[in-house]
Amino acid sequence: MIAMQYEIRLPSDYDMEIIRERVRTRGHALDGFDGLGFKAYLVRDTQYAPFYVWNTSAGMANFLYRGGGFQGILADFGRPVVRHWPGVAFLRGDAARAKYATREIITLAPEANPIDALKEIELEKVPGLHSAALGVDPRTWEVVRFELWEEHPGEEGAYEVLHFSEPGLEEITAG
């Protein structure tokens, strides 16, 4: 599993209906993309921030730079930074739908033992959780915790999921 996200920060006066229409009309195009575990097209405030979990690095590579779909982002918004985290854990919850998302990024302390630190960041099944992914960027030792929810989780800064597809959800493995 590889978690991946790019964020497109838009001007404060940007009409977010343009993004909503983009997702309504184009969001389904990559629903069955080879190697994709799931994708969630997310928005909050003036930010468009798709999040993906890939089952294969080949699928991610095809999407990003082998003509597999990222070209629309490049053409419309330029080249954003694409963050990615090798997967450490994945948990499937009991919720049927993913309508909101939360993301937490934690930087491990330089003296922290990564194995011990990761054991303390547990993914738990709680009511309303669709799924949760945990990954680590070993370049920066940042841990990402990404959760999808059926109802608003009550956290400030939660994303709204405009489009969600899960073609390879059952094949996601991590750790």
Rank of each mutant, 00 (worst) to 15 (best):
L134C: 01
L108R: 04
T102C: 01
G93Y: 06
F146D: 08
P114E: 01
D137S: 00
E155G: 12
A109D: 15
L129G: 04
A109N: 09
A98M: 07
R139E: 11
K125M: 02
N113V: 12
H130Q: 11
T102P: 05
D137N: 07
A98N: 04
K99R: 14
P167N: 11
D116R: 04
T107I: 05
G154T: 04
R145H: 07
A133D: 00
E166L: 03
E150T: 11
L162S: 11
V126T: 10
E122Y: 06
A101T: 02
P167E: 12
Y159K: 02
L108H: 09
G168Q: 05
T107V: 07
G154K: 07
H130R: 14
D116Q: 12
S131K: 02
Y100C: 01
H152Y: 14
E171M: 13
E142D: 05
I115L: 15
E156K: 12
A133S: 06
T173Q: 06
A132Q: 07
H163A: 15
F146R: 03
W149N: 01
E151C: 05
G135N: 04
L108A: 03
P167L: 10
A95R: 00
E122W: 06
S165F: 14
R139S: 15
V136S: 00
A98L: 02
A109Q: 13
E160S: 10
V136H: 00
F146M: 15
A98G: 11
R103L: 10
K99G: 10
V136G: 02
W141A: 05
W141V: 07
P127R: 10
T140N: 05
E104D: 14
D116W: 02
V144F: 12
G157L: 07
E166W: 13
E147Q: 14
P138G: 05
A132Y: 00
V161Q: 08
N113W: 13
E104S: 12
G154P: 08
G157V: 08
E170T: 02
P167V: 10
A96W: 10
L169H: 13
W141R: 13
L148I: 10
I121C: 01
T173H: 11
V126M: 11
I105Y: 06
P138N: 13
T107G: 03
V143Q: 15
E166F: 06
D116F: 06
D116P: 03
A101G: 09
I106Y: 04
L129K: 01
A117G: 03
P114I: 06
E166N: 04
D94K: 06
K99Q: 09
R103S: 10
N113A: 08
R97K: 12
H130C: 11
I121V: 14
P127V: 08
A96D: 15
E147Y: 01
G168S: 15
E104V: 08
G93L: 01
E160D: 05
D116H: 12
I105C: 04
V136F: 02
